[in-house]
């Protein structure tokens, strides 16, 4: 049962249907020990459903799924004993204190009381909630609740940590605090599995990721690979007046590898943005503004699916 090598999580043709709707439509992926693996995609892409199947919180409809060498259908308790789960919506126990949330969670894992007490103390320090240990859960800020949920997911020293949209709904400062904790976990060699619809989060945290759309995986690789494969190095973003845009008639032709029209701007995929900008100006196109930036996973997603991640 114990895998000495091979992937920690293995999915083949994994499918989840709610009535007739396929939320996850036959996906294949492997997650290897020690890597940070991401599911990037917009809301409704099937990321959470995939995550919930791995966490044994949702039965597999069809296909194959192995988690730490075990089958979620028959060995759910044994699998869950070795997972740490941070769900999309915090489900902390609001009737008990911060500290008791961790102590009690440890008990559900059959962790002896003295071990639970030691880990609780360490983890509260780790997520910077030591001062608030006797507080009720309700008065904590969104970021603090999220950090407490992460601490709770670590109480059983899990082999894999599942994080579903770890920073959605948080302010920038709170997001950075969470990312900082997750980096530290990565450095310690933890295996992280996360879903996100933020491309910056995916780029910062993931060693490898799959891009999901409408229940399917549309691409897989490291953030750098994906950008190299599906985008140019730089992107030139042009903002034009509506009447100028309507009268362009191919004035941008031949300048870029690819031109993407978006409601508020036109994106030119090029190797050297500054040079292309000069060429655009030379052709006499009147611009409201122009911006040269490096290509991101957002561009990869746009290229693969034709729509944006956050709309």
């Amino acid at each position: 049962m114990e895998p000495t090598d091979g992937p920690l999580i293995r999915a083949r043709n994994l499918t989840k249907r709610f009535d007739a709707v396929a939320a996850v439509d036959g996906v294949d992926f492997d997650v290897w020990p020690g890597e940070a693996f991401g599911f990037l995609g917009p809301n409704g892409a099937g990321k959470t459903s995939t995550m919930r199947m791995i966490a044994c919180a949702s039965p597999v409809t069809a296909g194959e799924l192995t988690v730490i060498g075990m089958d979620p259908r028959t060995e759910a308790s044994a699998i869950k004993a070795r997972l740490g789960v941070v769900p999309q919506q915090d489900n902390l126990d609001v009737e008990i204190t911060v500290e008791e949330n961790l102590l009690m969670y440890a008990r559900y894992f059959d962790i002896p009381r003295n071990v639970a007490a030691r880990r609780t103390k360490e983890l509260l320090e780790f997520v910077q909630l030591g001062e608030r240990r006797r507080s009720e859960v309700e008065p904590l800020s969104g970021g603090m609740k999220r950090r407490l949920t992460i601490a709770r997911a670590l109480i059983n020293e899990p082999d894999v940590i599942l994080l579903d949209e770890p920073t959605t709904g948080l302010d920038p400062q709170a997001r950075h605090a969470i990312w900082d904790r997750l980096y530290r976990l990565k450095r310690r060699g933890a295996t992280l599995l996360l879903t996100t619809h933020y491309m910056d989060e995916a780029e910062q945290l993931c060693d490898r990721l799959v891009i999901m759309d409408k229940g399917r995986i549309v691409a897989e690789g490291s953030p750098r690979d994906l950008i190299a494969r599906y985008s140019t190095r730089e992107v030139l973003e042009l903002r034009l007046h509506d009447d100028v845009r309507a009268g362009l008639h191919g004035q941008l032709d031949g300048l870029a590898e690819r031109v993407q029209e978006l409601p508020d701007r036109v994106q030119l995929y090029v190797a050297d943005g500054e040079r292309t900008l000069e060429q655009v100006r030379a052709r006499g196109v009147p611009l409201v503004s122009a911006l040269v930036r490096r290509a991101t996973l957002e561009d990869v997603f746009l290229r693969l699916t034709g729509h944006t991640l956050v709309d």
Binding site: A55, A57, S77, A78, K80, A81, L83, V85, P87, N91, L92, D93, Y105, Y108, F109, D110, R152, A153, N156
Partner: peptide, 8 residues
């Protein structure tokens, strides 16, 4: 839901 993420 939180408790069910454990072996419970």
């Amino acid at each position: 839901d939180g408790i069910l993420a454990t072996p419970m």
